[in-house]
Design a protein around this nucleic acid. Structure first.
Lengths: 223, 223
DNA sequence: CATTAAAATGAGTTATCACTCACTTATTTT
DNA sequence: AAAATAAGTGAGTGATAACTCATTTTAATG
């Protein structure tokens, strides 16, 4: 497996800009943990204060509202998820011709899977928000989707020209890949049992490759 | 595509047992709609009463608590989802030998996809609950997972004996299929754009079949 | 060390929400 | 149609949770 080249900002995320006091940092960490454990609405600000070991007033020192606190946690993720999901591979990864599907899938998804693994908690909070906040969901999607469709599309078209990939509409190809990624994510987020994460990750690449390999079973069986 | 043979109880779900007054029915419907739209915690009992066109006290007439109300909605689903997901195909569908993968996948998943489509709202509420209520999630899973693994496992083993299916561990096979189903569900629940539901459904079967077809790319690429 | 600014505190305020109950209206039963 | 039972009502209650602010503690600065 290729070495994962996750950018540093995933780790130092929470505190990247400005000075931040240890207590503020504790508040962010406690919030993230609790939001991921119990959900946003089921987490009270007094819960947060208690877990962080501070007074409740301290929570409101920097973040005016509970929602602002959640946004402060999600901001770095949503700010960086766009490059990771869409633009990131625009330069080097896009220009090159892939010799095989396996190479393509590996190049495109290794980073993303690593990203997901490193940010399970944040993703869970994002999903909870996106599930019911239609506006926000659409706003985030409108940032990501077009870029992704366009950029992946051009790579896929190249592969099609070389007859290296199945001859489906590009959106179907994307969907099948994202479904697979999504299922993997669900496994991580829900802590479903029977999961050896390392093996799963390699397997994900294999399955994706298999889906895309051209073959005789490729016609869509509609009615 | 095979005709969908969805059982009746999906349609008459909410009112299946006992006499239920029109107002009670309106309350259940309003609750379901609101829970799916805004989420459980963001829906107040006065919201429900208003949407249903009844007094707030009426909500508490039959259901002692808000949680009990949610359970009353989910009960028929969770009661029937077990047969649908696991036992349903135990008799006829299990015994027969499948001539092709396509036949197997179609037989197994057509019902389930139809079920999902007919119960998007309910599934959304279930997922919200399962996301953060660890106990309940595990309880539901413990009912479904073992049956499913066992019964699907035996069919898969048969197919393996006939060399009709990829030679992967059964849990990996199941995961890849469920991921695909899960991705489709996410599409329905989140109302993601660019979706022609009918086409997607046919495509789902095709992709699943493709994943399972034996071939040369089948070795898991681990490190 | 003294002064000033920033950070932290926690008791208090306000609003909302789940839930109750004494009472009214509708529906059966005799 | 009188009596009895069930269904429905909505003002009221207690608890909880988000948020405020006057005050204290800590850190920075001259």
């Amino acid at each position: 497996m290729e070495r994962p080249r996750i950018r540093d900002y995933f780790q130092q995320d929470l505190s990247q800009n400005e000075t931040i006091t240890p207590k503020q940092r504790a508040i962010l960490q406690a919030s993230l943990d609790l939001f991921a454990e119990k959900g946003f609405d089921q987490t009270s600000t007094s819960d947060i204060a208690q877990r962080a070991g501070v007074a409740e007033g301290t929570v409101y020192q920097r973040y005016k509202t509970k929602v602002a606190l959640r946004d402060a946690i999600l901001a770095p993720i949503t700010a960086h998820i766009v490059p990771i999901l869409a633009s990131d591979f625009s330069e080097d990864k896009l220009r090159q011709r892939y010799p095989s599907l396996q190479a393509f899938v590996t190049a495109i998804f290794t980073d993303r899977v690593a990203f997901a693994k490193a940010n399970v908690k944040e993703l869970k909070v994002i999903f909870e928000m996106a599930a019911f906040d239609t506006e926000r969901r659409e706003q985030i999607l409108s940032q990501i989707a077009p870029k992704m469709v366009k950029q992946m599309g051009s790579v896929i078209n190249q592969l099609k020209a070389d007859h290296l990939i199945v001859d489906w509409p590009n959106d179907l190809i994307l969907q099948s890949l994202l479904s697979q990624l999504f299922g993997y994510l669900a496994q991580l987020m829900l802590e479903l049992p029977g999961t050896e994460i390392e093996r799963e990750q390699a397997y994900l690449i294999t399955v994706m490759t298999k889906i895309l390999t051209p073959g005789e079973h490729d016609q869509i069986t509609g009615q």
